[in-house]
Amino acid sequence: MKSLISLLCATLASAASLSITILPSMHLSNPASLPPSTHAVLTGAPGVRYDTPIRRDNSFKFPDIAGEASYLLTIHSRDHFFPPLRVDVTKAADGTYAETISAWQTFRGNEWSNKGSPYGTANNGVLAIQIQAASQKEFYQTRGGFDILGFLKSPMILMGLVSVVFIFGLPYIMDNMDPDTKQEFEEMQKKSPLTGSQGAANQMQNFDIASWLAGKK
């Protein structure tokens, strides 16, 4: 059947044909779910543009691409992005009617000669390639709503809560301690390097900035 079509193409007109099938992928598990507005556009030389809607079998068909040229193939869909492709139609070297048609990935913002991975090449003018959706379109921004758990988890709030516990909780614990332990605790506090009378914190607090500036030791 395929050979028949190519024979037909070769005899009837020197027009290349391209068909693109969408394969299921991670982003698009069921190509049949694509809306009917999905369409493929083949942009050629200025003024040349082919536009075809998606078919029942998840494919696009450009039955007669006239003329040797370099084309940009873009697929537009409501919910998915597809990679742009470069499609080249060139005259066969051996002078037959059939044309060589090849497709590669192309990159926006790069030179046109910068071709990506090849999608296929056909010497008889009839190319069938397969393509997968690149990503899904995320249209909606969810608002950062008020989340009580997230609010409590934030470090500022945690720090605040801890200090609240210290401020209100410690005196209460101190009051409820029996006198022996309390004395022991106070002793310990005095000895500790940070809070004792010779502790760093105390020294810091009692630092006499005026005398230091005056050069007193």
């Binding site: 942009t43 200025p46 370099s70 940009l72 470069r86 990159f107 030179e111 046109w112």
Partner: peptide, 12 residues
């Protein structure tokens, strides 16, 4: 605008 591929810029 829509532009044809040139040496330094792609079609698009």
């Amino acid at each position: 605008f829509t532009v044809e591929a040139a040496d330094d810029s792609p079609k698009g």
